[in-house]
């Protein structure tokens, strides 16, 4: 069970050049809108045709430009959950789900599968409802049920939670995680929400302007994003130019401080990244006196904006998200554990 994608496609000024690979995992495509994530899914589904390249799913070639293979979407066995769920408005829940197994001719098998999926997605009693009579979460479950009854070899989710309100979102993400575990085959998920990606994906591929910046396991990516873009896309708030000064030491001229790292620093270091959650007033590592500029109160934490004493005036304030019970006291001194100093290259 594996997916291999290596495709290129030109769209006006936009050039999509994507190479990803996954084995029985949940792979997240994380990137800003317009970065080519959805286009990649469309190419895999066969809705769009790449200019060149290859798409291979479980050893079956779905697309190969050189061999002139281009299976129609109907033959690819790829489940595609659209952002708006794309339920057929003229059909009720039952008819919508039956559309997913129109290839099955045996009536009793059909009814059996239908009953099973309705139970799994907790949609019993809604068979006769039309899509517009359902809540966003129910619509999503109908769309998933409709896909799963066709037992696809790959499941693709396009921003699956963007149409839902934030309260529902977190709960459905947990439900979805269970569902994906049960599905047990390769899953591709497109998202611009890094929390969502972190919750659901084993691996993450960062997409920026049609290119894959990096593909790594989720934890490794957040722990060591390696590049400026990757640090930004994983939500790193404080990024500044830096110079290598030792095997485990770097200097940040604009902040006027030296920092020690846990990761060995390679040649070619250009910047350092420090996540807003990772400052600490109790650690003695990388500890320097700072000047508080502003404290912004949020529901469960405060944003403590500060500057180092020697900090260049033309650089932005540094952000620190502090839990309310951990607020530092003046005179302020802030430290950073070495494993939280992210060396960035390129």
């Amino acid at each position: 069970m594996s997916l291999f994608v290596d495709i290129r496609k030109k769209l006006g000024n936009f050039y999509l050049d994507v190479c990803i690979e996954t084995k029985n995992d949940v792979l997240g495509l994380l990137g800003a809108s317009g970065s080519g994530k959805s286009m990649t899914l469309k190419c895999i589904a066969g809705i769009e045709k790449p200019d060149e390249g290859k798409i291979i799913l479980n050893g079956i070639t779905l697309f190969d430009c050189a061999k002139r293979i281009n299976l129609p979407p109907q033959k690819r066995k790829v489940g595609y959950l659209f952002q708006n769920y794309a339920l057929f408005p003229n059909m009720n829940v039952r008819q919508n789900i039956l559309c997913g197994m129109h290839g099955e001719k045996d009536k009793t098998t059909k009814e059996h599968t239908l009953a099973k999926i309705l139970e799994m997605t907790q949609l019993q009693g809604f068979e006769k409802h039309r899509p517009h009579e359902l809540s966003g979460g129910q619509q999503q479950r109908v769309a998933l049920a409709r896909i799963l009854v066709g037992s696809p070899n790959l499941l693709m989710l396009d921003e699956p939670f963007s149409a839902l309100d934030s309260q529902l979102r977190a709960r459905l993400q947990i439900d979805m995680r269970e569902m994906l575990k049960e599905f047990g085959k390769s899953v591709l998920m497109v998202t611009h929400d890094r929390t969502e990606a972190y919750r659901l994906c084993h691996q993450i591929a960062l997409v920026d302007k049609g290119k894959i910046l990096a593909q790594k396991s989720t934890k490794a990516l957040f722990a060591d994003p390696e590049s400026r873009e990757a640090a930004l896309m994983t939500g790193c708030k404080n990024i500044m130019d830096a110079e290598k000064t030792g095997e485990y030491e770097l200097f940040v001229p604009a902040w006027g401080i030296h920092l020690t790292t846990a990761l060995p620093i390679r040649a070619g270091l250009t910047a350092v990244g420090i996540r807003a959650h990772y400052f600490n007033s109790r650690t003695n590592h990388n500890r320097y006196p700072v000047r508080c500029v502003e404290i912004i109160e949020e529901p469960f934490e405060n944003i403590f904006q500060f500057r180092y004493e020697q900090q260049d005036e033309n650089t932005p304030n540094i952000w620190w998200h502090v839990p309310k019970d951990r607020m530092p006291r003046a005179p302020y001194e802030v430290g950073i554990a070495p494993q939280n100093v992210l060396p960035l290259y390129g």
């Binding site: 979407p73 794309a86 057929f88």
Partner: peptide
């Protein structure tokens, strides 16, 4: 017409005439 309906129909294996 919302073209994603046609796309989703295709990925579900429905024929073009259906």
């Amino acid at each position: 017409f919302d073209e994603t309906l046609a796309y989703s129909g295709k990925t579900l294996g429905l024929s073009n005439s259906y």
